[in-house]
């Protein structure tokens, strides 16, 4: 079959755009990576071997998104990245290391409606994360990338990655506690 990039744009453009927007948040960046993805797809001759165009295009898109995130993370001052494990968590813990706001009991979502509500709040909370934390959290918990891959992609140390993921999860948890 002859692959027609315009068909890809028509059939999968919105999907790819949503995917990119959920990771990058900036509509212009998201549009750019969709365009780069389709241009890269044209250059790859072995499309016919792929089972699903959407899966294949999403695979290319993920790489483009990671390139984009890497640039964003590189712009973070080194001083901010290199904070150690005792990083400032004063909002969450008092001087003796006890919770300032003690975690409350959550009702786990039981049916699909509750699950949808939970996800809506979770996404809203994610959208409030600082971009660098959203980037690394998306890679780990949404794309389920291995830590090694993340460190390589973002050029950070494992300790940096663990601390950033910790901060992201602490912020998300607190936001969910307030709104769920």
């Amino acid at each position: 079959m002859t692959a027609n990039p315009h068909d890809w744009l028509n059939a999968h453009g919105d999907y790819l755009y949503r995917f990119a927007l959920s990771r990058l948040r900036d509509p212009h960046l998201a549009e750019d990576v969709v365009q780069e993805t389709l241009l890269a797809a044209i250059k790859q001759p072995n499309f016919a071997e792929q089972s699903s165009a959407r899966t294949w295009l999403t695979g290319i898109l993920k790489h483009k998104i990671i390139d984009c995130m890497r640039k964003q993370v590189r712009e973070i001052p080194a001083s901010e990245l290199l904070q150690d494990e005792e990083a400032n968590m004063d909002d969450f813990f008092d001087q003796t290391g006890h919770w300032v706001d003690k975690p409350q009991v959550w009702n786990a979502p039981e049916d699909s409606l509750q699950q949808q509500q939970f996800l809506t709040i979770l996404q809203e909370c994610m959208s409030r994360l600082p971009q660098k934390l959203l980037a690394i959290f998306s890679m780990r918990d949404v794309d389920e990338m291995e830590n090694e891959e993340i460190c390589k992609a973002l050029q950070i140390t494992p300790t940096n990655a663990w601390v950033m993921l910790y901060r992201a999860r602490m912020a998300l948890r607190k936001c969910l506690e307030l709104h769920w």
């Binding site: 919105d14 949503r18 959550w106 979770l122 949404v142």
Partner: peptide, 24 residues
């Protein structure tokens, strides 16, 4: 709570990108 968030993220990945109404 962390485990719940992680489980829900997995569900989110498969579900919501297809459902959302945002378009180019």
């Amino acid at each position: 709570q962390l485990l719940l968030i992680q489980r829900q993220m997995t569900a989110w990945q498969t579900g919501s990108t297809a459902q959302s109404s945002v378009t180019l």
